[in-house]
Amino acid sequence: MERISALMDGELDRDEAAGVLPDLRKRNDLREAWATYHLISDALRGDACVDCGIASAVATRLAKEPTVLAPRPGSSGFGKRWALPSLAAAAAVATVTWMSLETQQGTANGPIAVPASHLLVPAMGIQAQNPLADFAQTAHIPNSSSVVPPIQLPVREFDAYLMAHQEFSPSTAIQGLAPYVRTVTSGPAEVKR
């Protein structure tokens, strides 16, 4: 798959490409990957959204849809067989709804979307020193497909990611430890203009 991706990116030289092409002819999975990668790449280039929030849109529609729990009249065996799965589906929808209600609790400003990556932060107690300042200045780009608008959350959680990144940054190779100050800075991140 790596080679297919590289081939698509034009990263293989003539000999390497010649090595991949026979495999591409023979193997279904590689051809499928080739087609999929192109589809994805076209979608990206065409500015079409790849993650259109279909799942959440479906969930919303499903939630609005009345769920009929009773077996359909006159469909005897069929109805019985499908009653349980449909009940399970209703339960699943109910669970999803309940969970989304759960996440919406505790805010006076209506629904929120809690970035998953932030959820563990308060529990683990690794908040930045000045959480209020951190709350203040994050630019949130609303996810147009998302049903619920995002809330402003601490950004300093990214210190851990910054630290994980810094080891591999050429800035560390050129400047030594100094760029690590990025991970311990007390200031909030700036709004992206």
């Binding site: 780009i141 609303p142 990025r182």
Partner: peptide
């Protein structure tokens, strides 16, 4: 059960 919000930030 959660969906991350999209966000863009920068620091330097």
């Amino acid at each position: 059960g959660t969906r991350a919000a999209q966000e863009l930030t920068h620091q330097g």
